[in-house]
């Protein structure tokens, strides 16, 4: 619980304007940290599929959740500094004799382009789909990799 300072003013007791500022700052902090920690993440682009991108020293990783999409129905291309993921999610008909209680899963096409933040070695891009999660591994081009520079003493 926050402790709030109250001060006497002209019209009786009112809230200290500085404590209001404090409260505002705390709220902004919590919104910001929620975004950074990923709890409040939103599909920013509004295009299917939602992507997560991460990096380590050697590679960029682009991941997407594509349950029920066979790997032969996913097509990945790199063009300049863009990655294009397209494909189709097919849902087979279950026969005419079934009656549906719920139908929440969608079928259809998707096509998404995303620009990459660093140059990549397009010849060595690999993609695997495991348990419905696509991972595209893009090795960073030599010039984009971090390099340790040692300081010499003379």
């Amino acid at each position: 619980m926050a402790v709030i300072r109250w001060k006497p003013g002209l019209f009786g007791w009112h809230r200290d304007p500085f404590s209001e500022m404090d409260r505002l700052r705390r709220e902004m902090d919590s919104i910001y940290s929620a975004l950074v920690e990923g709890r409040g993440s939103v599909p920013a682009a509004g295009v299917f599929p939602a992507l997560n991108m991460s990096e380590d020293d050697h590679n960029l990783y682009v991941r997407a959740e594509l349950p029920g999409v066979a790997s032969e129905n996913i097509d990945i291309t790199t063009k300049q500094n863009n990655l294009i993921i397209k494909g189709e999610r097919k849902i087979a008909a279950e026969g005419e004799k079934v009656s549906y209680h719920r139908k929440e899963r969608d079928a259809g096409n998707f096509r998404r382009i995303i620009s990459l933040p660093t140059p990549v070695d397009t010849n060595k891009v690999t993609a695997i789909c495991k348990n419905g999660v696509l991972t595209v591994t893009l090795p960073k081009a030599a010039e984009a990799k971090p390099r340790q520079i040692s300081v010499k003493t003379e």
Binding site: G38, R39, S41, V42, P43, A44, A45, A50, L51, N52, M53, S54, E55, D56, D57, L60, Y61, R63, E65, I114, P117, V133, T135
Partner: peptide, 15 residues
């Protein structure tokens, strides 16, 4: 977990 420990997120559209 999707991804290794040493990875840093650049974009996160899903959890």
């Amino acid at each position: 977990d999707q991804g290794g420990e040493k990875e840093r997120f650049l974009l996160r559209e899903y959890n």
